[in-house]
Amino acid sequence: MPAASDVSYQPVRLRECEADFVTQVEEHGGRDAHLCYQCGSCSGGCPVVFMMDHTPRKLLRMINLGMKDQVLASGTIWVCASCFTCTTRCPRGIDIAKVMTACRELAQKEGREIDNPRSPAFYQSFVEIVENYGRLFEPMLMAKIAMRTRDGPIDAARELVKDAPLGLEMARRGKLSLLPHRTKDLEQVRKIVRKVREMEVRK
């Protein structure tokens, strides 16, 4: 919800902007972000715009102005549900959904303060599990997120107990396994992950 501190009502200080921010976003998958002409089609179709501090259109303007700090601190990039409606409709061919993804990546890599800490907890836990087993293991995902976002194990357990009834229902129907499934050639998956990390450092 717009507050008095909303960037729209503040002067943009160019010396605090990073002119190459839009290029960074594009390099991380936010195809053609610099082409935005502010038509607002993205905001018009976004199903979660009511929960965003900046609309997608406004975020694109901020990115093009180089307002990196404000963009990476925004709630918008974490509220985005990755539905690709905006990408489908953008008359300039901008992949806005991936612009959001790129901003999430940059915010995490640069250790920024994050509007909804549950989101990075979810992403990082997910990736750790895939790296370990090649496939996702849902119960472990829930446990890891709880451990990352709660104050200590007791508090984490409390969150897990809340979800226990559904878990039992799923187990009763054979939809929850107690052991993780694995990719057989796990070493192959790990080599790919390690290589990607290495390439990232080299850059």
């Binding site: 991936k98 993804t101 999430r104 990546e105 990082q124 990736v127 090649g134 790919i192």
Partner: peptide
Amino acid sequence: IDWNCCGATAASSTDHLLGLAL
């Protein structure tokens, strides 16, 4: 096939390339 997880929104939100390489 001996598939692995696609990484879903999670992998691509932590690393663009990882989300494609998986």
